[in-house]
Each structure stands twice: as C-alpha cells, then as structure tokens.
Design a protein around this nucleic acid. Structure first.
Length: 110
DNA sequence: ACTGTGACGAGGG
DNA sequence: GCCCTCGCCACAG
C-alpha cells in the first residue's frame, strides 16, 4: 500500500489477486501498477517471486496467452500442469480460451 | 555511479 | 499476416 514498497511487491500483491482458473498478462499488471511500459519488469519481478509460494506466477502469461515463463518454472511443464490443475486448458505453450480466461486487474480491481 | 538485464509490448517492413 | 527491431524502466552486480 505504501509507496515505500518496491515495484516487485506491488506485482506480487496483484498476482495474489488473480482468481482461481484465471490468467492475466504482464502488461495488464504493469498497466494496473501505472507502469504499462514496464511490462518486462513485471515478468522479472515474478522471477524474484519464485521464492514466494503465495504468488501464483503460473497464472501470468504474456499478451499472447503463451506460457513464456514456463521455462523458468523449473525447466519442466510445471506451469502447464498448474494451469491445467485449475481447469485452464493449455495447448503446448498457448492457453486456450485465453481471451475468455483473461483477467484484467485494471478492469476487475478498477 | 554506471551498465547490463530481462518471464513484454507495440510498431514497422 | 508474419518476422524483425526498438523502446522501456526498475533492480542487481
């Protein structure tokens, strides 16, 4: 809440707000944080959040709905497995019905 | 203090 | 419509 918190913690907080069975994009989170141009930072922040189990980074994909970060999820299909465990169908690295499952923090959290 | 980086996004050819 | 290039901005070394 305080601006004292770093950009990373902001990202973590939004990620925790992602509903079950839903996914969002890095850009959407960045935009919600007021830094739409820092979409890359969001993904990087997730990297640091890897140590935090409270941050469902597997629900965050790129704007294409592709599991770009899967490679960072332990080198396995863990990310895909986690998404499928939430009824999120994943075709390879592409999330099916991404548009329908897309959860925009700016729109949902306003 | 400076440089590099990086799980993206948008624009141009 | 696909592929390539540039920009971007906060954090780590």
């Amino acid at each position: 809440m305080s601006d004292n918190q770093g950009f990373f913690e902001r990202v973590y907080e939004v990620c925790r707000k992602i509903p079950y069975g839903r996914v969002t994009s890095y850009g959407a989170i960045a935009k919600y944080l007021g830094a739409a141009r820092s979409a890359r930072m969001v993904g990087w922040a997730m990297n640091a959040s890897h140590n935090l189990e409270d941050v469902p980074a597997h629900r965050v994909v790129n704007r294409n709905g592709v599991l770009t970060g899967k490679h960072h999820f332990g080198g396995s299909d863990a990310m895909k497995q986690l998404l499928e465990a939430e009824n999120v169908k994943v075709e390879g690295l592409q999330v099916e019905n991404f548009k329908d499952l897309f959860w925009d923090p700016v729109q949902e959290l306003s």
